[in-house]
């Protein structure tokens, strides 16, 4: 009896150790055995990481990071945070992290030199309005009467034309900075950006502006997709992808997104 209990206890303990040590997939594939090293920006921004404190698990990327770690079999305390600069991390070479999360868009060029996980976020289009139009309701009808602007080379142009069909012809610009200038100068009421960009612009760049709504993410837009960045050829990629796939299937990723990128930011879906 005691023997059996012992065996059970040992095997339980072994199982536990196994789990704690990174389970079947990630074992021996991380930078430090038994630890999952995640890099974020320096500093890390709202709403991706709240208060520049990823350890809290507060903020979208912080929350996803812990969920993925858990899915991969790491305990909360085995998650190690490091900081990295954005540009440095997309260079080829040895990394000091297992994965890096700071809104890296997955692009073919970057994929040549580093590896990306499956996307953990597909940036939806969002509407940023200047100070004079912050009262606009997040409905298509209300958006029609705005004076629109967009970057001419983006899909926002088509989106404005096909979905909003504004009464005034939109003004188009060469880059985000010019759209900002036009919003600041009140030459346009609103512009379409992907949500992360819109949030950043309204928080940091354009005084008095507000993100009044977001469209449901649609992959057909060839929208920006964020992936976890890894060293080229990192065997960990399979484990991370596996974890993300199961989170997508279970809907847990979507609920993290709803919590941190819709509820917390207060950017409602446009109807």
């Amino acid at each position: 009896m005691s023997k059996r209990i012992l065996v059970a206890a040992v095997s339980l303990a072994l199982m536990a150790t196994n789990t704690i040590a990174g389970g079947h997939c990630a074992a021996d594939k991380t930078l430090t055995a038994g630890k999952f090293t995640i890099a974020t920006g320096n500093p890390a921004y709202y709403p991706w990481v709240l208060d520049d404190a990823p350890e809290s698990g507060q903020g979208f990327e912080a929350a996803v990071a812990y969920a993925v770690a858990k899915e991969m079999g790491f305990a909360e305390q085995d998650v190690v945070w490091v900081r990295s600069s954005f540009d440095e991390a997309i260079q080829p070479g040895v990394k000091n992290f297992d994965v890096n999360m700071q809104q890296y868009s997955i692009t073919a060029e970057r994929d040549q030199v580093v590896d990306f996980s499956l996307p953990y976020y597909t940036a939806p289009m969002a509407v940023l309005v200047g100070a004079s139009a912050t009262d606009t309701k997040p409905t298509i009808a209300a958006l029609k009467s705005l004076k629109w602007g967009a970057v001419g080379s983006t899909t926002a142009v088509q989106k404005i034309a096909s979905i909003i069909q504004p009464t005034n012809d939109p003004l188009l610009y060469g880059d985000n900075a010019d759209v900002n200038a036009a919003i600041s100068a009140n030459q346009i009421d609103g512009a379409m950006f992907d949500l992360p960009t819109a949030l950043f612009l309204s928080a940091v760049m354009i005084e008095g502006s507000k993100v009044i709504g977001q469209f449901p993410a649609a992959s057909s837009d060839n929208a920006d997709q964020f992936g976890m960045l890894m060293e080229e050829g990192n065997p960990l990629k399979a484990c991370v992808d596996e974890a993300l796939t199961s989170m997508i299937n279970s809907g847990s990723l979507a609920s993290i997104e709803a919590k941190w990128l819709q509820d917390t930011t207060g950017v409602p879906l446009i109807k």
């Binding site: 001419g152 142009v157 012809d169 939109p170 003004l171 188009l172 010019d178 030459q187 346009i188």
Partner: peptide
């Protein structure tokens, strides 16, 4: 600075 004239339209 915004107006969608021929060059911008071509760019779109």
């Amino acid at each position: 600075i915004g107006p969608v004239e021929i060059f911008r339209q071509a760019g779109v």
